[in-house]
Design a protein around this nucleic acid. Structure first.
Length: 466
RNA sequence: GUGGCUAUAGCUCAGUUGGUUAGAGCACUAGAUUGUGAUUCUAGGGGUCGCGGGUUCGAGUCCCGUUAGCCACCCCA
């Protein structure tokens, strides 16, 4: 006997989780499309040289690689950005710029696992390439905001910074050469103590007075206007630093003009992002209730996406939603619905003599867009209802011999156990209409939840508990 | 990849300084109840105690290895 098991960091998805995941993907798709981003897809497997081109030792170590049947050196993509860069180098000519795309697909990293960190996980990227317009930067922030709001998360914070501001501050302190080490240390401020970070900075050879200035910069907080004013003072000597501060100011103005609630988007000078290709605005977003989970959606602006694959400069801006990490967070917060079925109506099977009627009724409901599960066995009614309730069906439709004789049907709301009698007298249209109105009245009472701040989320809150 | 913690039934966990056939609640199956699900009663199925070695008269319990999960580092979604 072979022991059934899955690899470290790889997981099965049971219906309850898979349904929540698919609904999240639906929301992301809808939001991306609402801004005009178009879908693309690329192969999971790429030539190794494409993936290692970027050449960071870390990603090299995490890469799943092997020699294929034709002797080619290949690797599984570890993010969606590198394949997109290759994609752009091959196709910009026919696509034209600016080009906006979204891409939702699995990626693989052979790193150690932890809560919300897996070896196979899905990313939902969106990018705008071929333009340096600040409008594209603004759109990125708005998309991230709309996305998190539409998912139904009530408490989240989008943290913004600009690489040029960090660069300006570091240059002013004579630390431009050590920027990677310094930024990496500053990035730990959320987790490590101030003293530990200070010690680490000192170990990188940063003078004591500079350590103090860096920490004070990274700890700037409060009204964005105040933070920006303080940063403006720190980068006074640097032209690009001033540009970064100005860009952040313009972004905040734009976000406000678009109607985003104050407080959801803040300036946080400690946000650096590890990825070295970012050159302008950078963004991370967190669940306020689970800050230790890490960023669930991150991104930024880069000068040249595909420099390794083409001479055509391709500036762009974009971000990535980690839905598997988000799902882990929502599950921990008890915000995932336990529903195990995508169908809305559970049709009870009373007696074989009425089988043809049940099939007719189910077909009529399905034709009207109502998903119906017809129980395949004429078992005890109590058992059938138990199954329906456990799987989370909203309503059960009960039509037995008595109902057929009387021309009625029982529509039972499984959550409340309340039954409504429908008089349909063999008219399927009447039955379908009545069932639909039962489903609508239930939706209405379930989803009238106040949303705090921001524009009302578009549509329902899929996969989330009311 | 490095270090630490954990692993008993589908789930949540008991299991006393190593001592006979490893338990509970919930869940599941069948019946009481050939038409109404979170109630009641009865019966039942299910565990080589993650896996593999070792110490011992004897190991769920101690030791080593291994696999997986979690935590920290690293990095990041």
């Amino acid at each position: 006997m072979i022991e059934p098991r899955t690899l470290k960091g790889f997981r099965d998805h049971l219906p309850a989780q898979a349904l929540a995941r698919e609904r999240l993907l639906d929301v992301a798709r809808r939001v991306y499309r609402s801004y005009g981003f178009a879908p693309i897809d690329t192969p999971a497997l790429e030539y190794l040289e494409i993936l290692t081109g970027k050449g960071s030792a870390e990603t090299d170590k995490q890469l799943y690689r092997f020699t294929d049947h034709g002797g080619r050196e290949v690797g599984l993509r570890f993010d969606l950005t590198v394949p997109f860069a290759r994609f752009c180098a091959q196709h910009v000519a026919s696509l034209g710029t600016p080009f906006k795309r979204y891409h939702m697909a699995a990626v693989w990293r052979g790193e150690n696992t932890q809560r919300g960190r897996y070896r196979e996980f899905m990313q939902c990227d969106f990018d705008t390439i071929g333009t340096t317009s600040p409008v594209a930067d603004l759109e990125m922030v708005l998309v991230v905001h709309d996305l998190l709001a539409a998912i139904g998360i009530e408490r989240f914070t989008i943290r913004l910074n600009d690489r040029r501001v960090l660069g300006g501050v570091l240059a002013g302190l004579g630390l431009a050469e050590r920027s990677t080490d310094v930024l990496r240390s500053l990035d730990k401020l959320g987790k490590a103590t101030r003293e530990a970070v200070a010690a680490e900075l000192a170990s990188h050879g940063v003078p004591a007075d500079a350590v103090d200035k860096l920490l004070r910069m990274a700890e700037l907080a409060g009204p964005p206007a105040d933070v920006l004013a303080a940063l403006g003072g720190l980068v006074a000597g640097s032209e690009s630093g001033r540009a970064g501060v100005a860009a952040l100011g313009a972004l905040l103005d734009g976000v406000q003009a678009a109607g985003v609630a104050a407080g959801r988007v803040v300036v946080d000078p400690s946000i650096a992002r590890g990825l070295d290709y970012y050159t302008g605005v950078v963004l991370e977003s967190f669940l306020d209730e689970l800050p230790t989970l890490g960023s669930i959606c991150s991104g930024g602006r880069y000068d040249n996406l595909a420099g390794l694959y083409t001479k055509q400069p391709l500036p762009g801006v974009g971000a990535s939603l980690g839905i598997d990490r988000l799902l882990a967070g929502l599950e921990e917060l008890g915000r995932l619905s336990a529903t195990e079925t995508p169908a809305e109506v559970f049709l009870v099977y009373f007696a074989e003599e009425h089988l043809a009627d049940y099939l007719r009724i189910a077909a009529a409901l399905r034709a009207a867009g109502v998903a119906v599960e017809f129980f395949p066995e004429a078992k005890r009614v109590g058992q059938q209802l138990k199954v329906a309730a456990k799987k989370g069906f909203p309503v059960a439709l009960l039509i037995g011999s008595d109902e057929f004789a009387a021309g009625t049907a029982q529509c039972k709301q499984l959550a409340t156990q309340q039954s409504t009698t429908i008089d349909w007298h063999g008219d399927l249209h009447v039955l379908v209409d009545a069932v639909q109105s039962q489903l609508i009245s239930r939706d209405a009472s379930a989803s009238c939840r106040p949303s705090r701040g921001g524009p009302p989320p578009a549509g329902d809150h899929p996969g989330l508990r009311p």
